[in-house]
Design a protein around this nucleic acid. Structure first.
Lengths: 200, 200, 200, 200
DNA sequence: CATGAATGAGTATTCATTCAT
DNA sequence: AATGAATGAATACTCATTCAT
């Protein structure tokens, strides 16, 4: 077992965390490109030079922020870590929760959106996002399959394809472009109607 | 009839168009913020000073580019200006067309995506995007209603809410995040299955 | 009698005047360098190109504005065109009037100040300012000599040198730098005391 | 004793001084607005980016230059830091010295003049200039009072008001507008005659 | 580990001036 | 006599990154 780098001390680890948290906040505030390394360093209580000691380039910091974001900001707030025995209810909760979250924290979703686009030119980002989406896709497909077993979800649906479709809905949903009033409110119910068995 | 103040000559109109086209290309290539006025001017064959003669600020150019994009790049390429008598077929064509387009021209959709986010802080952009989405929403809802009259689309659906949902699918779709292979291909069929009457 | 240039039509003459007036206002507002030819032209109701037809360079316009300023703005507002038979009273009125004017229209004096400095590198400006100061100097010296003949002004003063000194006071006065309160109010009286014969 | 955050090293202090000196020279040469940050940086042997590291904006540099100017360029060159026991002689020396200085270094006084005008819109400048004028006013008033005690200056003068008047003379004097020849030379003597007791 | 100092390469924007028509 | 179109040359300011200490 070769050890390339001495284990970072506890002090260093804490600084890293502080930098990532500050970076996340700054990027939520000002966007991926708009966030300034100087501000991030200041918010973490250190100088830019020190920031670059921990993260040689801004892209390195961005990667760490994405990792942190997926790990800390995506599961619990959306109920994705709960065990659901009603797949349809889970989906509806997800959609409703996301709509609320997107309104309350648009910067959070702008950041994720920017990272998805940025991932096209950064393999490290791409890998993280792919893993995240794959997880998510599997979760949703699982909900659907569970629903089909319970007879609550239409049996003729392809769970994989429908899960993909739902992920697209979610991705589009957080953009929340200006749309005619009213239709949005009925979105959760409509999705339910599309997926549920007729009898229900 | 004497004209004291001559209207912009044909030369100026052409240069405006050339600038907008160059701006569109540069923004597709490098993004909204990444596009440099210098490059745009050079690509249009003029100096930066002349660019600023036509568009005092970069934001003014961005607005003109969005207008151009909505008008020239969104309708024909997606078949939105065709008369469809089968709403379901129209939708399927739209989704398939968008997927192809999103793969062929990701920069185009990145630009639209950036403009949607930017519109949150620019009333002029917001208005254009709202008008565009409203049109689009009405078109899709119309397709759905037509399908319901023909008995091809499930009668229990709310055309407004479903149209909103489809727009979200489309918005998410063009982001095209990395997803497990295969599921995407069946997306058009799946959407069809969700919406169509069972008999069909 | 040779005629070098055809007499300008009445229309042209009026535009020239309008441009000069607009130039004066803009320079009072924003200073000599701060005034923009574009704004001046717009304020005169014409385009920049036309402004340059009348005044090939900005410096040409500045010269015309100085001429206009000396002619229209310096005599009447300060009572310099009145016939005074009490030189001392005239001086006191001048100083009081200038202080009021400098407070009410600081931009006017900033402009004159800038022009005096600019005149070091522009012979045409220098000539106009020299003529203006010479006139003014002669007027003040005349007041002093008149006062000496009346026995109201100290006979031992050199009217020329004292006039120079008074002009310096005036030039400094319009700058109105921040000074301890109070002393300024007594300035007119003090000047009087310095110049007047003891008996008075 | 460990020092966690090192104070600016001697290197930085020297560069600051060099920048201020270069700024002063450039502003004397080309005026406040005319001085270019590029040239100043080049003259100090650094890049523009480094200039902005020390002085975030040009205005910050201007303030530092004014401070330097008042401290380094106004006292010694004019004999204001000498102890005089003859106030009248001090005044005469001041006036003569200023006239010489104004002829030798017109740019220096143009700069001060511009700063006085600029101080109307910059509180930091205003405060420095007010402090400087207050000092100066107190010095001159002190000279006058001393002269009155010695019986050399007319007892009926108000030292405060006369000091104000003298400052105005000085401010106007450094402008040195074109005036009829000769009168200027007698200015020092004339001022003396105005202020001195008749007997002297 | 940490930082003060320094910078290369931009960046959008400005403005008096010109010229073909 | 007038102007729409065009521009050269600048201008202050920015920001991620580097490096000696």
């Amino acid at each position: 077992m070769s050890v390339k780098r001495a284990k970072p001390g506890p002090r260093a680890e804490e600084r890293r965390e502080r930098l990532i948290a500050a970076g996340y906040r700054a990027m939520v505030r000002s966007g991926l490109e708009g966030a300034r390394t100087r501000d991030i360093a200041a918010e973490a209580g250190i100088t830019i030079a020190t920031l670059h000691y921990y993260f040689p380039t801004k892209d390195d910091l961005v990667r760490a922020v994405l990792e942190h974001t997926i790990r800390q900001q995506m599961l619990a707030p959306l109920g994705l870590d709960t065990d659901w025995d009603d797949g349809l209810a889970a989906l509806r909760t997800l959609v409703t929760g996301l709509m609320r979250h997107a309104d309350a924290e648009p910067g959070h979703f702008r950041l994720l959106n920017e990272m998805i686009w940025a991932s096209r030119e950064d393999p490290a980002l791409r890998e993280m996002i792919a893993a995240w989406h794959t997880d998510w896709h599997a979760t949703v497909a699982g909900w659907l399959r569970g629903g089909q077993e319970d007879g609550r979800v239409r049996a003729d649906l392809d769970p994989e394809a429908t899960a993909t479709l739902i992920i697209y809905v979610v991705l589009g949903l957080v953009t929340r472009p200006p749309l005619p009033d009213g239709a949005e409110d009925r979105l959760g119910a409509e999705l339910h109607r599309l997926l549920a068995t007729v009898e229900e």
